[in-house]
């Protein structure tokens, strides 16, 4: 009985429930509500995109889920457990990928990827080196790049390293804050494919903040469109065919694209 319930919770580690989230910032005495009674439910092993105009609170929501911002009210449940009141410890099966790759400039690529393991200090040295090497290869960084400093890499390479660093601790939840915003279209689609592959292989839940509609449609099981601090609308994006680059040309893709941009346009007009 007990074993069964533990098994169940293990497979649900990747689920996220936000209910009644309120966040406000005070700047120069002026209180501004960023998130207003926001509810969001992300089932385990799905990819959800947060889409919306800048300033709608999508990054803040991501940071609330990450535990980097404490909400003024509401509950964040991750893997069935309420984490919203714990200041110090966070679920250790959650990783964050930042908008700029956020690599430490004084460390080599390999040292950067090893950082999370190093900070946790749990894994034996040889074992962790193996993990690091495996992920460096997996994200497509060749051995010749491993000992380079971040400033010697292109934007796409840096983002690959950043993803490797996020995955090296085997997270069940991957939180990404406009990770590919600064990349050109070709690189962006390549990295979209990489992300899909990783998420599928590792059974990862992904919460993906973007303002690019095509990217959101391509990646997501569900798109949550945000406006004025709330989820304005949620649409699920089922595709029968595999998500590969040829999907982008199909009428179905175009129809989802149109649907999402309609909603975005409508909600943006309201503000």
């Amino acid at each position: 009985m007990q074993v069964q319930s533990m098994m169940a919770s293990a497979s649900d580690l990747g689920s996220i429930e936000c209910s009644g989230i309120r966040v406000s910032y005070t700047t120069r005495g002026q209180k501004r509500e960023v998130l207003k009674q926001l509810d969001l439910s992300v089932p385990a092993s799905t990819i959800v995109s947060l889409l919306g105009p800048s300033g709608c609170g999508k990054s803040t929501l991501l940071r609330v889920i990450a535990g980097l911002v404490n909400p003024d009210g509401g509950i964040v449940t991750i893997g069935g457990e309420d984490w919203s009141n714990s200041d110090t410890s966070k679920p250790d099966w959650m990783s964050f990928v930042f908008q700029e790759s956020a690599l430490l400039p004084w460390r080599t690529v390999r040292e950067n990827v090893a950082l999370p393991i190093e900070l946790r200090g749990g894994v034996s040295k040889g074992n962790s080196q193996e993990q690091v090497a495996r992920w460096l290869q997996h994200v497509g960084l060749g051995k010749s790049d491993w000992n380079k400093k971040p400033n010697e890499l292109s934007g796409g390479m840096k983002m690959r390293a950043s993803i490797a660093r996020a995955m090296v601790t085997k997270p069940k939840i991957l939180l990404m804050d406009e990770p590919f915003a600064a990349l050109d279209d070709v690189l962006r689609s390549k990295l979209n494919d990489l992300l899909l592959k990783i998420a599928r292989e590792e059974c990862c839940t992904v919460v993906f903040v973007t303002h690019n509609i095509a990217e959101a449609v391509y990646l997501s099981d569900t798109i949550a469109i945000m406006a004025r601090g709330q989820i304005a609308e949620q649409i699920s994006i089922p595709f029968d065919e595999l998500r590969t680059n040829s999907l982008r040309g199909t009428p179905k893709f175009a129809s989802y694209f149109g649907q999402v941009s309609d909603i975005l346009f409508r909600t943006a007009l309201d503000t």
């Binding site: 990450a66 966070k90 990783s95 964050f96 930042f98 908008q99 956020a102 950082l115 999370p116 900070l119």
Partner: peptide
Amino acid sequence: VNENLRDLFRMQSANRLQ
């Protein structure tokens, strides 16, 4: 220190000394 890097360390529950 750059905010993102700080958050990166917070995500790993790094202690003060780290």
